[in-house]
Design a protein around this nucleic acid. Structure first.
Length: 150
DNA sequence: GCCAACGTTGGC
DNA sequence: GCCAACGTTGGC
């Protein structure tokens, strides 16, 4: 079982949008970066991911989602009307993928980026490396556990 | 709104 | 293959 971190802007799609429909699955689409895409394809059913709010009033980890469906081609890449449309992508050879996620729980409070940065034990997290802008990335178990203890 | 860091594109 | 120009991400 692996752990992940997935970013979204809460004004577009936040943890509350998931919390509103418990038990339902949502397709995590719109990822258009190859490294992030590769992480999506490595995800297995049952993996857990932190739901991270970027560009938010409170930037940080807001909740946890469960991966309930492994990577399948992202249909928004083929839809000219979609904001994430990729004119170069070809349905016969899909470049972009998404996974199915399900709401697991909200954290009692948002664990802010500032707090994550302040923790010595989290220094080596991928999220905190300078210039790290990936919207989907792996989280080491030791970091996952440490964060849940905050 | 600003801007640094990064990814992508395209000319050569 | 190099690299400048441009677009995007995301913190502040």
């Amino acid at each position: 079982m692996n752990y992940w971190l997935m970013k979204s802007e809460p004004t577009v799609f936040g943890i509350d949008d998931l919390a509103r429909r418990p038990g339902k699955r949502d397709f995590w689409d719109g990822v258009r970066n190859y490294q992030a895409r590769n992480s999506l394809r490595e995800m297995k059913k049952g993996d857990l991911a932190f739901f991270y709010h970027s560009n938010a009033d409170e930037t940080g980890i807001a909740g946890i989602v469960k991966i309930v469906g492994e990577a399948t081609p992202d249909p928004t890449a083929f839809d000219p009307k979609d904001h994430h449309y990729d004119p170069k992508s070809n349905p016969d050879k899909p470049a972009w993928y998404g996974v199915d996620v399900k709401f697991e729980r909200k954290l009692k409070r948002v664990i802010t980026l500032a707090e994550l940065k302040s923790r010595r034990e989290l220094k080596t997290m991928k999220l905190l490396q300078p210039g790290s802008r990936l919207s989907v990335m792996p989280v080491e178990k030791k970091h996952w556990d440490a964060i849940l203890k905050l």
